[in-house]
Computed example of a mutant assay.
Amino acid sequence: MGIKLINIGFGNIVSANRIIAIVSPESAPIKRMIQEARDDGILIDATYGRRTRAVIITDSDHIILSAVQPETVAQRLNSKSSEKIDLN
């Protein structure tokens, strides 16, 4: 079994197996989720100071902020060229 890794921008990589959703940060409920995650210490900001364009929700309840468009992250998730590491 291999682990598929997805580049979420600026050299940051996330395990594709852990991603539940990739959403836009525009709506009020998502903004509340981001603030609650920040308060709880489970927010990972991978934007390098740039505007947040995608919010990645993981199965461990971590929220990851990315400066890459959600569509781009989704394309990378579905791409065959994504980094795959074999654990055997």
Rank of each mutant, 00 (worst) to 15 (best):
G2N: 11
I3R: 07
I3D: 06
I6D: 09
I6G: 04
I8L: 04
I8Q: 10
G9A: 02
G11W: 03
G11S: 04
G11N: 02
G11Y: 05
N17K: 14
R18A: 00
R18I: 00
I20P: 00
I22R: 06
I22G: 07
V23T: 11
S24K: 01
I30N: 04
R32G: 04
M33V: 09
Q35L: 15
D39R: 03
G41W: 10
G41R: 05
L43D: 09
I44W: 04
D45I: 03
D45W: 05
D45K: 05
D45L: 01
G49A: 02
R50T: 14
T52M: 02
R53I: 04
A54H: 08
V55K: 11
V55T: 11
I56C: 08
T58H: 04
D59E: 15
S60Y: 06
D61A: 10
D61T: 12
H62D: 00
I64K: 07
I64V: 09
S66I: 05
S66R: 11
A67E: 15
A67F: 08
V68W: 01
Q69A: 15
P70K: 11
T72Y: 07
T72M: 10
V73S: 04
V73W: 04
V73G: 04
L77K: 07
L77P: 05
N78M: 12
S79Y: 09
K80Q: 04
K80F: 03
S81F: 05
S82D: 09
E83W: 10
E83T: 09
K84V: 15
D86V: 09
L87E: 13
N88F: 09
